[in-house]
Structure formats: structure tokens, C-alpha cells
Amino acid sequence: MKNYKKIVLVFLALLPFTGCSPENDIKIADFTKYAFYEEFLGNTTDGSVLNITGWTNYAQVGTVKWNEGLYSGTKYAEFTSYQSGQASNIAWLVSPAINMDTMNNETLAFDVAQAYVSSSSNSIELLVSTDYDGTNVMTASWQTLSFKTPPLNYDTNFTFFSSGLVDLSSYTGNIYIAFKCKGSGTNTSLDGTYELDNVRIFDKK
């Protein structure tokens, strides 16, 4: 994580936490229950490799994985290639199996922040699989899903945005949600940071 983070966060503490502008605030519709909710509350050490029961933290290229994020009481998952020293880093964070047969209008939402991201090649993707075996990420079939990403803009560094509502109602049985990040530790235009929090699937009414 870049050294400027704490300075930026002190400033941002004075701003609303839900986003940089009203149009980015997402009001979640009424729901009956959560099928899944992850807040990363087990984080204890900022910058240590994230290890959550049931989740897969996998480095596809390079050695960088998702890390624990912890700052001023806020806990989240974090990916950054900054100072990795590796030309390419690709890391996956894959959820446990989520049963889609317990409700009818399954909807995914999460909060995502970015910092020092200036290129679309320094990316975060949302994917879903119905055939992941819990171990072999690269042999599973993955479908890319669209969500609202933070703008490539310095003014929004480390400000969490809502992903918007991602419709999952067409899926049945068990699914797995994955967050895939790409970056570089040798190309300064690709060494930005992504942060992830409040991953939830609920019954949207």
C-alpha cells in the first residue's frame, strides 16, 4: 500500500463513507434475509495474507495474494501490486459455496474502493462459477458479471463505492463468487490498490 494512504484517509474521514456523490449511493431494497454476508471482521493484521475459512485466496500470476485490510477500525480485503517487484500479478479471491435455492430474487451487492488506479489494465473483475470444486480455480468455468466500478480519479482514492445491484436470480444450486485483480509491481501505471468489503447476497423484493 502506498505511503500516502494514511494522509488521504484522514481527509476522507471528513466525507460520507457511502460514496463520493449521491448518485453512487445505492439504497438496498427491502429483503427478507441474507444468503451470504462477508465483512472481513476476522482481520487482525493490516497487510497480512487474507485467510478466511471457506474462501480461496489464489495467486494466478506472481506471488501477490489478497491481504487483510485494517485501518481505523474498518476491515476489508485488499489487493495491490505496489512494490511486488513482479511484472505481472493476478490474484483471485473466491467465496465459499453459496446455496441459491434458499430464496427467489437473489441479488449481489458489495463495496469497492480503489487508489492510484490510472489504467483499465489495473483491474478488478467480478465472476461467478457453478462448477468450481473449491480448489482448482483455473479448471472451473467462470462467467464475468458487470458491476459499477469506482472512476479512475485521484479524488476518489480509498473511498468505498457501492457495486450496484447484481442480479443472480437465474442461478440455482451452489455458486461461487470471485473477485479477480490484475496489476504490476514494475509498471507504476499498474500498481494501484483495490479494497473490497460488505459482500452480501440477499432476497431483493
Rank of each mutant, 00 (worst) to 15 (best):
T107V: 01
M100H: 11
T149P: 15
T135S: 05
S48N: 14
T156V: 04
T74V: 14
D101E: 09
I28K: 13
T56V: 15
S95R: 07
S88H: 10
N67Q: 13
E68P: 02
T156E: 00
A113G: 03
K65H: 06
N89W: 06
S123A: 06
D155F: 10
S48G: 14
E125R: 13
M100W: 08
T130A: 03
T53F: 08
L70W: 12
D167I: 03
N67E: 15
T74D: 14
E78I: 02
T56E: 13
Y132A: 00
L165A: 01
W142L: 02
G164Y: 00
S88F: 05
T45Y: 06
F36L: 12
V137G: 04
L165V: 00
V94Q: 03
S121H: 05
F110M: 05
S81W: 09
T149R: 13
G164H: 00
L145Y: 10
W142H: 02
L126H: 04
N67C: 11
A77E: 08
V64L: 05
N43T: 07
V94Y: 05
M103A: 02
G54K: 12
T135E: 02
I52D: 11
Y154Q: 08
G54T: 09
T45N: 06
N122T: 10
Y82L: 05
D30A: 14
G69A: 09
F79D: 01
A140Q: 01
T63L: 08
A77S: 10
A29W: 07
F147T: 01
K75L: 04
F36G: 09
N104D: 15
L152E: 09
P151N: 03
S163L: 01
D46H: 13
I52Q: 04
S129G: 01
M103P: 02
V137Q: 03
T56M: 14
E38K: 14
F79Y: 01
L70F: 14
G54P: 14
A140K: 00
T144A: 11
D167N: 07
S119V: 04
L108C: 07
D101C: 06
F147N: 00
A29R: 12
T63C: 09
N24C: 11
G54V: 12
S81F: 09
A109R: 06
Q60M: 13
S120D: 15
T80G: 12
T144I: 08
A97E: 08
P96T: 11
Q60T: 05
S120A: 14
T107I: 01
N122Y: 12
Y71L: 10
P96K: 07
S118P: 13
A91C: 00
G73L: 10
G73P: 09
G164S: 00
L108K: 07
G54E: 09
Y76F: 15
T44W: 04
S129V: 00
V117T: 07
N57Y: 10
L50P: 07
Q60N: 14
S141Q: 09
T56P: 15
G54Y: 06
D101T: 14
A97Y: 12
Y37C: 15
T74C: 11
Y154C: 04
N99W: 02
Q86A: 11
A109E: 11
V166C: 02
Q60A: 13
S146Q: 07
T130P: 03
K33R: 12
V117N: 11
T149D: 15
G47E: 06
D167V: 04
D155S: 05
P96Y: 08
Y132S: 00
S81E: 04
